[in-house]
């Protein structure tokens, strides 16, 4: 698994598409696909942050599905927004979201064979 992390609108998906030549049908935005939705080749999960937010809004724990997916597709690319570089939100849900996504990203980074941070469309290999 490869992890791409970076701020909002930094060109993370374009960077990944150029680097990994992924079929656009295998790019899933803010969702974890079922086996039936995936075709042969590398899979990209874009906006994992959106998925985590939705899952938490629905009262579920996002970790299980994410890690199950990686088990099934160990060659996937996961793209996620960096959201922790700000002031602690007043809203309790927002605080919880920031913490959950941070912890998930740490776990993903540990598992990943490569971690890149994208700024201004440029990837910086940090692992």
């Amino acid at each position: 698994m490869r992890l791409i992390i970076g701020g909002y609108a930094q060109g993370k998906l374009d960077y990944a598409l150029q680097k990994y030549h992924v079929d656009s049908r295998n790019v899933f935005d803010g969702s974890i696909p079922d086996r039936a939705e995936v075709i042969n080749g590398t899979v990209i999960i874009n906006h994992l942050n959106t998925y985590i937010r939705q899952s938490m809004t629905d009262g579920k724990s996002p970790e299980t599905e994410i890690f199950d997916f990686i088990d099934k597709y160990p060659d996937c690319v996961i793209i996620t927004d960096e959201v922790g570089n700000g002031i602690v939100p007043i809203d309790e849900f927002e605080r919880g979201f920031r913490e959950t996504i941070g912890r998930i990203q740490i776990e993903l980074a540990k598992m990943a064979e490569e971690v890149e941070r994208v700024i201004c469309g440029i990837g910086q290999k940090i692992k």
Binding site: G84, G86, E99, T100, G102, R103, I106
Partner: peptide, 8 residues
């Protein structure tokens, strides 16, 4: 230095 829940 790091963000919230960055593992810092």
């Amino acid at each position: 230095i790091g963000g919230s829940s960055s593992g810092k």
